[in-house]
């Protein structure tokens, strides 16, 4: 049975590192894995999405509407944008940080209000929390990705060491401790 994880955010937030870490984890666990990324123009502050799929045999590298078991969202508006991709019984984990897109900055559109309530109103499982503050407390605002991965790890029956091993493989040595701290901050948040 193939499981689908989507990672969504704003270009430059570190979504690619998050997909790299979970991709490696599932390979280490013996699954067939596909990870699809977007490079190029959208990385310049645009809406970005990465798909991670794992199972016995994975064909498509993409995840479509109604197919995601988990969505990890780095920003609240992006959570709203990609809500439609969640399975009915999937889980949407989101950072509550808000980053205004250019149409909002210049006044051509407005940032929707009460996003969390509206997503819950669809009957979907939402896990929203302030990952940015936890990342900053761990040492860097850039560690939001590890905080979210820590949160995701609660849904998998893997030993911490399995996660830490791939984190060590994927981040530069001098940032390993900080990233592990951020991972635990996400994992242990109430």
């Amino acid at each position: 049975m193939t499981k689908n994880i989507m990672i969504v955010g704003v270009g430059g937030q570190g979504t690619l590192l998050a997909s790299k870490i979970i991709g490696k984890l599932f390979v280490a666990k013996g699954f067939d894995v596909k990870v699809s990324e977007v490079h190029g123009m959208s990385q310049r502050g645009g809406s970005v999405v990465t798909y991670v799929r794992f199972g016995d045999r994975v064909y498509s590298p993409m995840i479509d509407k109604g197919e995601a078991d988990y969505i990890l969202s780095f920003e609240l508006l992006e959570a709203a944008r990609w809500t439609e991709y969640l399975k009915k019984d999937g889980i949407l984990i989101t950072n509550t940080q808000k980053t205004n897109p250019m149409p909002v900055i210049i006044g051509a559109a407005s940032y929707p209000e009460n996003i969390e309530e509206k997503i819950k109103g669809l009957g979907l499982n939402l896990d929203a929390f302030d990952a940015l503050s936890l990342a900053e407390a761990a040492g860097s605002a850039k560690a939001v990705n590890l905080v979210l991965l820590g949160r995701l790890s609660r849904h998998f029956d893997y030993a911490d060491e399995d996660w830490l091993a791939v984190i060590r493989e994927c981040v530069p040595e001098k940032f390993i401790d900080m990233n592990i701290k951020a991972f635990y901050a996400g994992k242990e948040v109430k």
Binding site: Q43, R44, G46, M62, T83, L86, P103, A109, L122
Partner: peptide, 29 residues
């Protein structure tokens, strides 16, 4: 995508639940 292929072959596929209002675009800057 798998969905466009399923749709065009007239095979069943899942739908998701869309956010109930328009979400502002986030173009690259």
């Amino acid at each position: 995508s798998q969905k466009t292929v399923a749709r065009d072959l007239k095979l069943p596929f899942e739908e998701g639940r869309a956010f109930p209002e328009e979400v502002p675009a986030r173009p690259p800057v």
